[in-house]
């Protein structure tokens, strides 16, 4: 029982990160029907932004408060990643809008390779560590067999930040002019343009928002594991994409739900079945869900436009 609860806590933590990344996939897919395969690598680059800025803050400026450092690092990483993705979108995707469907997809795969290889060359192929942000661990209860159920401060930070960010993001999508424009573009881009919405800019901003959420995930990922390497974009990226599809691509609550499920499935599978086959489990679940529920868990069935 204690083991199970412990693994659920771990699963929700990693699942939150998947959920944050998955939103970027699902929003971009919703608005222009494109799978942004570079998104995983954007996540990895954002972790490097965080890493560099954290080291700058702690060693050059000697900021002792880790809380302050973490908040600053997160904001900087969000801004830099947002700018990077805005540039990527302008250079690699926007010129291909309106061409055949596969063109931006190929372009995104290219961008993904560019980003990971650039980091490999610029930052080296080895794990980059940071000093531990916090070692605080709270014991929730001591099991009868002596096995404790722990939750670390890092995990609490991840839960709280994710929840706050999702709430803010939900507010933007539901209540602001930008969010309404995004939803309008999702349904009918031409009509939105005729009402004065700058569709091109709305699409760019969608990419940027997705990138900012991925940057938060990147910073939290770095804080949680303490290391990052150039190839770290791939597996979390693919898993987050899986989460988006599992939850129903295009659906925002679906992306979060999918992320949490993937996180839970892989940790529980790792505990009870085989740690070596964690990834196999996550993707097998995806296959099974897609066979029986092609729109994903919360996805709307495709409605043909007249």
């Amino acid at each position: 029982m204690e083991v199970f609860v412990q693994q659920v806590i771990n699963g929700i933590t990693i699942g939150s990160l998947y959920g944050l990344i998955a939103i970027g996939y699902t929003m971009v897919f919703g608005i222009i029907g494109m799978v942004n395969f570079a998104h995983g690598d954007v996540f990895m680059v954002s972790a490097f932004f965080a890493l560099i800025f954290l080291l700058v803050l702690t060693s050059w400026f000697g900021i002792a408060s880790m809380t302050l450092a973490l908040i600053l690092v997160m904001v900087v990483s969000m801004v830099l990643t947002g700018l990077l993705v805005w540039a990527i979108e302008r250079v690699a995707y926007a010129p291909l809008r309106g061409s055949f469907r596969l063109a931006p997809l190929i372009s995104a795969i290219g961008m993904s390779i560019v980003l990971s290889n650039f980091i490999q060359v610029a930052q080296g192929p080895r794990n980059k560590p940071i000093p531990p942000v916090t070692r605080e661990v709270y014991t929730l209860w001591q099991g009868t067999n002596g096995y404790p159920v722990n939750i670390s401060l890092k995990q609490i930070i991840i839960w709280v930040v994710t929840a706050l960010l999702l709430a803010a993001f939900w507010y933007v999508v539901q209540k602001t002019a930008l969010g309404r424009a995004q939803r309008a573009c999702e349904q009918d881009r031409k009509m939105a343009a005729l009402l004065g919405v700058n569709v091109d800019r709305t699409i760019s901003l969608t990419f940027v928002i997705g990138a900012a959420l991925a940057a938060v995930a990147g910073t939290l990922f770095l804080m949680y594991y303490g290391v990052v390497v150039f190839s770290d974009g791939f597996t979390p990226g693919v898993k987050a994409f899986t989460a988006a599809v599992l939850g129903g691509i295009g659906s925002l609550p679906g992306a979060v739900l999918g992320g949490l499920l993937i996180g839970l499935i892989e940790t529980l599978w790792g505990q009870y079945v085989s740690a070596d086959y964690q990834n196999v489990a996550a993707f097998s679940i995806l296959v099974i869900v897609l066979i029986f529920m092609p729109q994903g868990l919360l996805g709307r069935p495709e409605v043909e436009k007249v």
């Binding site: 602001t176 002019a177 309404r180 939803r183 309008a184 349904q187 009402l195």
Partner: peptide, 30 residues
Amino acid sequence: LFSGMTLLENLLVAQHNPLMIASGMTILGV
């Protein structure tokens, strides 16, 4: 129409530009 959005939201999308400017590209608005 944007059939998935409410009537009110449909009419608000049509007033996107003044709102977008007033909200300082969303950031100030949030």
